[in-house]
Lab assay of single mutants.
Amino acid sequence: QTQEFDNEEEARKAEKELRKENRRVTVTQENGRWRVTWD
């Protein structure tokens, strides 16, 4: 699953929550947008 964010702060917040659920999370930056991908 993927979700896009406008800034790193929001993306990192989402990453932190997903990691609490023991998910594999990848955060990438593309064209000024932050993308959080998880399984």
Rank of each mutant, 00 (worst) to 15 (best):
Q1R: 11
Q1Y: 15
Q1N: 14
Q1E: 11
Q1I: 10
Q1T: 11
Q1H: 14
Q1V: 13
T2K: 05
T2S: 13
T2F: 15
T2Y: 15
T2W: 15
Q3E: 09
Q3I: 14
Q3A: 12
Q3C: 11
Q3P: 02
E4V: 14
E4W: 15
E4R: 04
E4D: 09
E4K: 03
E4F: 15
E4T: 12
F5H: 02
F5Y: 13
F5E: 01
F5L: 01
F5R: 00
F5I: 01
D6M: 06
D6C: 09
D6I: 05
D6H: 05
D6Y: 04
D6G: 05
D6E: 11
D6W: 07
D6K: 05
N7P: 00
N7Q: 05
N7D: 09
N7G: 04
N7V: 06
N7W: 04
N7H: 06
N7F: 05
E8K: 03
E8V: 04
E8M: 04
E8S: 02
E8L: 05
E8W: 05
E8P: 03
E9W: 13
E9G: 07
E9Q: 09
E10I: 03
E10L: 09
E10R: 03
E10Y: 04
E10W: 04
A11G: 01
A11L: 02
A11F: 02
A11S: 02
A11D: 01
A11C: 06
R12H: 05
R12G: 03
R12K: 06
R12M: 08
R12T: 04
R12Y: 07
R12N: 03
R12C: 06
R12V: 04
R12A: 04
R12F: 05
K13P: 01
K13Y: 12
K13I: 11
K13N: 11
K13E: 12
K13H: 12
K13W: 13
A14L: 15
A14E: 03
A14W: 15
A14D: 01
A14Y: 15
A14V: 14
A14K: 15
E15N: 01
E15Q: 05
E15K: 02
E15V: 08
E15S: 04
K16L: 12
K16R: 13
K16T: 12
E17R: 12
E17G: 06
E17H: 09
E17T: 09
E17M: 11
E17N: 09
L18F: 06
L18K: 05
L18R: 04
L18S: 03
L18V: 03
L18D: 01
L18Q: 03
R19I: 12
R19M: 13
R19T: 08
R19G: 06
R19D: 04
R19F: 07
R19Q: 11
R19K: 12
K20N: 10
K20I: 09
K20P: 03
K20G: 11
K20S: 10
E21W: 08
E21H: 14
E21N: 12
E21T: 13
N22F: 14
N22P: 03
N22L: 05
N22G: 15
R23C: 13
R23S: 10
R23M: 14
R23E: 08
R23Y: 15
R23P: 09
R23V: 13
R24F: 14
R24A: 09
R24W: 13
R24N: 15
R24H: 14
R24K: 11
V25K: 00
V25I: 06
V25C: 03
V25Q: 00
T26H: 09
T26Q: 07
T26I: 12
T26Y: 09
V27F: 02
V27A: 02
V27D: 00
V27Q: 00
V27T: 04
V27P: 00
V27Y: 00
T28E: 07
T28N: 05
T28S: 13
T28F: 08
T28L: 07
Q29A: 08
Q29S: 10
Q29V: 12
Q29E: 14
Q29C: 10
Q29H: 14
Q29G: 06
E30V: 14
E30Q: 10
E30W: 06
E30S: 10
E30G: 04
E30P: 02
N31V: 02
N31G: 10
G32E: 04
G32V: 02
G32N: 06
G32D: 08
R33T: 07
R33L: 08
R33Q: 08
R33W: 08
R33E: 03
R33H: 10
R33M: 11
R33Y: 10
W34L: 00
W34A: 00
W34H: 01
W34Y: 03
W34R: 00
W34M: 00
R35D: 04
R35N: 08
R35G: 02
R35Q: 12
R35I: 15
R35K: 15
R35W: 13
V36W: 01
V36H: 01
V36G: 00
V36D: 03
V36E: 02
V36A: 02
V36Y: 00
V36M: 03
T37N: 12
T37M: 10
T37A: 10
T37H: 14
T37W: 13
T37L: 06
T37G: 05
T37F: 11
T37I: 12
T37S: 14
W38T: 13
W38S: 14
W38A: 13
W38R: 03
W38G: 06
W38N: 04
W38K: 02
D39P: 07
D39Y: 13
D39F: 14
